[in-house]
Design a protein around this nucleic acid. Structure first.
Length: 638
RNA sequence: GCCACCCUAGCUCAGUCGGUAGAGCAGCUGAUUCGUAAUCAGCAGGUCGUCGGUUCGAAUCCGACGGGUGGCUCCA
């Protein structure tokens, strides 16, 4: 074995003694704090890592995606160190980086509160200033177990026991150490721009049967400026919160008398109904038939469907006189599917009837746990643009394709770019055989790939009756919400003993596909508000045109213009109040009315209007016919 | 449901050490008749989320409950 190794650094190549630290070839004596780690033969390593073989070495800077991740992870360690110093007896668990930051879960003697954060932050700053060396130590796994056991860190011991490798790495800074894969920044002085954001409860390993830990969220950036910018962005996102905009724009409200169930006000109901109108147009084109089905069903239906066994916790139960004060004998529907099987089974079906696509905007009620409710994005009362497709096994692929096309059309026309596709696979609690599940998962995965869509697996997240394609879009704070879904189901047809007559005259079992494109209209509207900042496309705007009169003298003309626009089928109003124009413009801007039509004596005289578009600085004079033409030219999707 | 926090006028928020509440906006009334993001003045509006406790006295301290916020979990 040679005592030297060849290092490739960009275009140059050098020979250095074996065991030379990455830092020495990369920094060459320069004090550069922007390089936090290195990539050696493609693997991320510490700057202190010794080169033991020929290698290509690349610097990882703090502002690169990998670099910022390392910086945040090191910040999480710094936080854990500060916490354990300040609160002796607190155990550490895990502290990963997440999008835009990091968190660390602790098992403290008493849960942390936000008041603890400044103190922890202050200690972190001291520790950063001390510029402690961050050292990687590799030890046999069993030795590490003994070490952490001695430290009383039973969560770390549990983690170690699940690690298959015989050697593990520990990172030490000062007296403090933590089990960690690394890499990390060379010393705590690298950590300059960070902030602790909030505290939250979190179960150990995400399982509610386990202990409740105390989680602290924070973030770190390569520079103070980048941190400031991020905090500003968070603030802007809060401005776009659909709950805030919904109240300000008069779209909906919530009342403690029905927690988690929105009241859509006249303006919000317009958005709601226009979305339904849009979907109905698509249904005609894509071949769906709309049905209207009951709100409550006897328990027998839910017992047959499996909801009684798998979904009862989430159902609102109710009774009629037959229950005679005993157990509730009815339940509000949480899903439309069982009701649709009733329609399918009501007639003798033939292969000629398939695919049968039944769409339903029926209201659904789900008793979601109180802590999960979140504005319009998680509600207890909702309607979906729901449909169930009954088809032959051979039709599955073309039906899934049809719905994927529909998903793409809808999200493209509404301007959503960040759409994520996932394939949710068999959950622990499920109906049907594993073999059937795997086969169906493959079918959905193939459909996604066939349609040229990027997708990831979401293991164990399928519905209890089948695997599903889930489509996610983000809200203002980048939280991802599932909107559309396409689910394969062999189980309900089995449970309801559904059948159709084949061409050969035999009886066969249909397959059901559950699907929604917008998903819950409530959630979709919530996400749409945040996506658009409340500035809806023209066709969805609750108020499309507002005529602003300049003075009492033109009241009549202003009303006439508004009437004309209304007769043409647009949602319009006239602001005839005795207010200054600037004030009326301001209110229309805040109300996000796309067309502001200003009329004064000049316009009344010439029978014209002065058009000001929302967020548009200049105004345009035009005839009444010109205005109507402009409105009619506004695009309508579908 | 669990952990932390919050709840004062329709909305956004002040309210010191425990001494029975205050602003801006919105609303109402009046004046102003106005050219592209806030005209002026006056009036009215609150059992301080609810219930209980501590105290001579509670918006303020403690507890329970309700609702909400951020997470966990669940899920469209």
């Amino acid at each position: 074995m040679s005592s030297e190794v060849t290092v490739t650094l960009g275009a140059s190549r050098r020979v250095v003694p074996r065991g030379t630290a990455v830092r020495d070839v990369l920094l060459d004596g320069n004090k550069r704090r922007d390089i936090v780690a290195a990539r050696v033969n493609g693997k991320l390593v510490d700057l202190s890592r010794a080169l033991e073989e020929d290698a290509t070495v690349e610097p990882v800077t703090a502002d690169s995606p990998e670099g910022i991740d390392i910086l945040r992870h090191s910040t999480a360690h710094l936080m854990a160190m500060a916490v354990q110093e300040l609160y002796p007896g607190t155990q550490v668990t895990i502290g990963p980086t997440i999008e835009d930051g990091f968190y660390y879960d602790f098992a403290p003697k008493a849960p942390f509160t936000v008041e603890d954060l400044p103190k922890i932050e202050a200690r972190m700053r001291e520790l950063a200033k001390a510029n402690l060396r961050v050292e990687r130590i590799e030890v046999p796994r069993d030795e590490a177990i003994g070490k952490f056991q001695a430290m009383g860190e039973r969560y770390k011991v549990e983690i170690l026991q699940d690690i298959p490798e015989q050697t593990v790495s520990i990172y030490r800074q000062g007296e403090w150490m933590d089990l960690c894969r690394g890499p990390h920044v060379p010393s705590t002085g690298y950590i300059k721009a960070f902030k602790l954001l909030n505290v939250a409860g979190a179960y150990w390993r995400g399982d509610e049967h386990n202990a409740m830990l105390s989680r602290i969220y924070g973030t770190a950036f390569a520079s103070k400026e980048a941190l400031e910018e991020h905090l500003k962005l968070l603030e802007l996102a809060r401005q776009r919160d659909h709950r805030k905009l919904g109240r300000e724009m008069g779209l909906f409200l919530f009342d403690p008398l029905s927690p988690g169930s929105p009241f859509f006000l006249p303006r919000g109901a317009i958005v709601y109904n226009e979305l339904i109108v849009y979907m109905r147009r698509l249904y005609r084109r894509y071949g769906f038939d709309e049905v209207i089905t009951p709100q409550v069903f006897k328990n027998d239906l839910w017992k047959t469907s499996g909801h009684w066994e798998f979904f009862r916790e989430n159902m609102f139960l109710t009774s009629d006189e037959e229950s005679a004060g005993a157990e509730p004998n009815y339940a509000f529907k949480p899903m439309n599917c069982p009701g649709h099987t009733v329609i399918f089974a009501a007639e003798k079906r033939s292969y000629r009837d398939l695919p049968l696509r039944l769409a339903d905007f029926g209201r659904l009620h789900r008793n979601e746990r109180s802590g999960t409710l979140h504005g319009l994005e998680r509600v207890r009362s909702m309607a979906q643009d729901d449909a169930h497709i009954f088809c032959t096994p051979e039709q599955i692929e073309s039906e899934v394709d049809l719905n994927l096309r529909m998903v793409r059309e809808v999200y493209a026309s509404l301007g959503f770019e960040a759409v994520e596709f996932k394939l949710a696979t068999m959950p622990a609690e499920h109906m049907g055989s594993e073999e059937q599940w795997r086969e169906n998962e493959a079918k959905l995965g193939n459909a996604l790939s066939r349609n040229g869509l990027q997708w990831e697996e979401n293991p164990g997240e399928g519905a209890f009756y089948g695997p599903k394609i889930e489509i996610y879009v983000p809200d203002a704070l980048k939280r991802k919400w599932q909107v559309a879904t396409i689910q394969l189901d062999y189980n309900l047809p089995e449970r309801f003993d559904l059948s159709y007559t084949t061409a050969a005259g035999s009886e066969a079992r249909p397959v059901m596909i559950h699907r929604a494109i917008l998903g819950s209209l409530e959630r979709f509207i919530g996400v749409l508000i945040e996506h658009t900042g409340g500035v809806f496309p023209f066709w969805l705007a609750p108020e499309q045109v507002r005529v602003l009169s300049l003075s009492e003298k033109v009241e009549g003309y202003a009303s006439e213009v508004a009437q004309l626009v209304k007769r043409e089928g647009f949602r319009a109003s006239a602001d005839l109040r005795n207010e200054k124009l600037g004030f009326k413009v301001r209110e229309a801007e805040l109300g996000k009315v796309p067309y502001m039509v200003v009329v004064g004596e000049r316009e009344a005289e010439a029978r014209t209007v002065s058009l000001r578009m929302l967020r548009g600085a200049k105004n345009e004079a035009m005839s009444l016919e010109g205005l109507v033409r402009r409105l009619k030219d506004e695009p309508l999707p579908g």
